[in-house]
């Protein structure tokens, strides 16, 4: 009798464990991690250095980027502002691409965020205006 009871308990434990594992797997599949964009404003590194920010026109920003001025993503304002250097998936600096968004009030960048030598870097999958 004791033996039968032990077997029943063992089988019940196996079934419960199996269901739990199955449920955990389903939960994992059903809720992929949301790719939230890093949201901020495109500014030139010169503006960051001087602390004087302007509202860019698209053509002016493009011309400035062509001259070699780096454009970056600024998240937040004032002393709490954080600067992100945005790179393309192929490893090239995306400053010129970013300059095309300098006239937008707000943009979002989706991608892998890294910190290297104290610099915040985003390897961008998607860059979009968010107005």
């Amino acid at each position: 009798m004791k033996r039968i009871l032990s077997i029943i308990i063992l089988v019940a434990l196996v079934v419960v464990a199996s269901n739990y594992a199955d449920a955990a797997t389903k939960k994992k599949v059903a809720t992929p991690k949301a790719a939230k964009p890093t949201v901020g404003k495109v500014v030139s590194l010169n503006e960051v250095a001087t602390g004087s920010f302007i509202q860019w026109k698209k053509a002016d920003a493009a011309a400035e980027a062509t001259k070699g001025t780096p454009f970056v993503l600024m998240v937040g304002t004032g002393t709490k502002a954080q600067i992100y250097f945005v790179y393309n998936a192929d490893g090239s600096f995306a400053g010129k691409k970013l300059a095309n968004y300098a006239f937008n009030k707000k943009i979002g960048v989706v991608g892998k965020i890294q910190t290297k030598n104290g610099l915040k870097i985003i390897i961008a999958d998607t860059i979009e205006a968010m107005e």
Binding site: A34, K36, P37, V39, G108, T126, E128, A129, M130, E131
Partner: peptide, 11 residues
């Protein structure tokens, strides 16, 4: 020229 699914943070 792209627009995004409802769940996205983009437009």
């Amino acid at each position: 020229i792209r627009i995004y699914e409802t769940a996205s943070s983009f437009g």
